[in-house]
């Protein structure tokens, strides 16, 4: 017990970061589950972070309220740009959403209300570990149950083959739009929590490199699986700590680990398990054939 208290005191910041990163990873996994690559989650996190921080600075509203409003703002922006953008396919969607992220950065850098390049500081430090993990647990529950709903089936079908899905009454445009908006909202929650966890935020927190981090969580964990996304976030957030003793070689080893996963487990870590499952079923079926 004492050991646990000690461990927490030493690593609470890291534990909080893992939780927030896992929420970011879940946000991206929603659009990935529908089979589209939208890369604006960092930007949506930023929008919500600014909205939540400003409300908390100017009005003194509590974390729960500012986080909800921040997430709603991110979802609203997501809905506005989602209408045109989710009609794009593949790499065009990725490029358009990256472009949107860059525009958001320029706006944040130049508005006076967002504090320009300096950002906002003295944001009330209201995020606590249990609040982060409560949100994460609620989201994990949501994703777990989502697979059993008709919407969850529609999402999976669109990922597998959107044309075939359409010929069974599923509207791929609608699935893509709502997963995009939902993804923006979840990224917004993560961004608000991040803002209240750190004393200050600036546009640089929501740039392309953060988006790539989120993408790496999902790719490493398993692109279309919410469990994989959370696992990936935890592993990638821990790697720098684990390899801390390597000092200057740390980034190289990080890179090697990432490469190894991408090469040897292209479906991500979660994919190792399910590939094995499907593989066994395939083998069993082949055996049945030869009999």
């Amino acid at each position: 017990m004492e050991w646990l208290v000690h461990f927490y005191a030493l690593h609470s910041k890291l534990i909080d970061q893992i939780g927030i990163n896992a929420i970011f990873a879940l946000s991206l996994s929603l659009t990935l589950q529908a089979g589209h690559l939208a890369l604006a989650n960092a930007a949506f996190g930023g929008i919500a972070a600014y909205v939540a921080s400003l409300l908390s600075l100017s009005r003194g509203w509590p974390l729960s309220v500012t986080t909800l409003i921040g997430a709603a703002a991110a979802a609203a922006v997501g809905a506005v740009i989602g209408l045109p953008v989710t009609r794009l396919r593949g790499v065009f969607l990725a490029i358009a959403t990256i472009g949107f992220g860059e525009i958001a950065l320029i706006v944040e850098n130049n508005l006076s209300i967002t504090g320009g390049a300096e950002g906002l500081s003295q944001i009330p430090n209201e995020t606590t570990t249990w609040k982060i993990y409560l949100v994460l647990a609620i989201l994990a529950f949501f994703f777990w149950r989502l697979r059993r709903t008709r919407a969850g089936w529609a999402i999976a079908a669109v990922r597998e083959d959107e044309y075939a899905a359409a010929s069974f009454g599923i509207d791929p445009a609608r699935v893509k739009f709502w997963t995009f908006v939902g993804s923006a909202a979840i990224a917004g929650i993560a961004g608000s929590l991040y803002a209240h966890e750190n004393f200050f935020i600036s546009p640089g927190d929501w740039g392309f490199s953060r988006m790539i981090d989120i993408l790496v969580y999902c790719v490493i964990g398993g692109a279309a699986s919410p469990w994989g996304a959370m696992l990936g976030a935890a592993i990638i957030s821990l790697l720098p700590e684990v390899f801390r003793f390597l000092h200057d070689y740390r980034d190289i080893v990080n890179g090697i680990v990432l490469l190894a996963v991408v090469i040897f487990a292209p479906q991500g870590i979660a994919g190792l398990w399910s590939r094995d499952q499907r593989g066994r079923k395939a083998a069993a079926a082949a055996e049945g054939q030869s009999r």
Partner: peptide, 20 residues
Amino acid sequence: RLFPRMTAIENVVVGATRIR
């Protein structure tokens, strides 16, 4: 044009979307 990573049963379940 099946849903490649879904099982046979899952493919048919998606087929039933209209009547669910």
